[in-house]
């Protein structure tokens, strides 16, 4: 399998995992809406720039996509395949252990 280093790195942060959860639950949010949800629903105290930096990393790993909808951009969860690959690999580890 490919190394998936970028995916593991992207997942190695609780805020980034929360962003993925948020987008998987409410797909297609603007950056503003995501920041409002992180602040008001999850008590994340972070600047938009901070959130933006996390999003850059998630996008680079292919887990999030930014799509233009007319004048504005929405963020979408795009990591089904990558997360599935990682999950399969994690699962194999535990299978070997139980044999």
């Amino acid at each position: 399998m490919s190394s998936n280093d970028d995916v593991f790195q992207a997942l190695a942060d609780s805020t980034r995992r929360l962003i993925l959860e948020e987008l998987a639950n409410n797909n297609g949010q603007t950056l503003y809406e995501l920041c409002v949800r992180l602040t008001m629903e999850h008590d994340v105290d972070m600047t938009r720039q901070g959130v933006s930096n996390h999003l850059d990393l998630l996008e680079a790993a292919g887990l999030v996509e930014s799509t233009r909808r007319g004048k504005y951009k929405v963020l979408e969860f795009a990591g089904t395949d990558q997360i599935h690959d990682v999950g399969t690999w994690l699962h194999r580890l535990t299978e070997k252990d139980s044999k």
Partner: peptide, 25 residues
């Protein structure tokens, strides 16, 4: 009117965001 954010409630506040057709949300 086009909304970029549908109504959502968080922390006791309900909010939504729309396009004013003049260049602003």
């Amino acid at each position: 009117v086009e909304f970029t954010q549908e109504p959502m409630t968080a922390g006791g506040v309900t909010m939504a965001v729309f396009d004013d057709t003049c260049g602003n949300l």
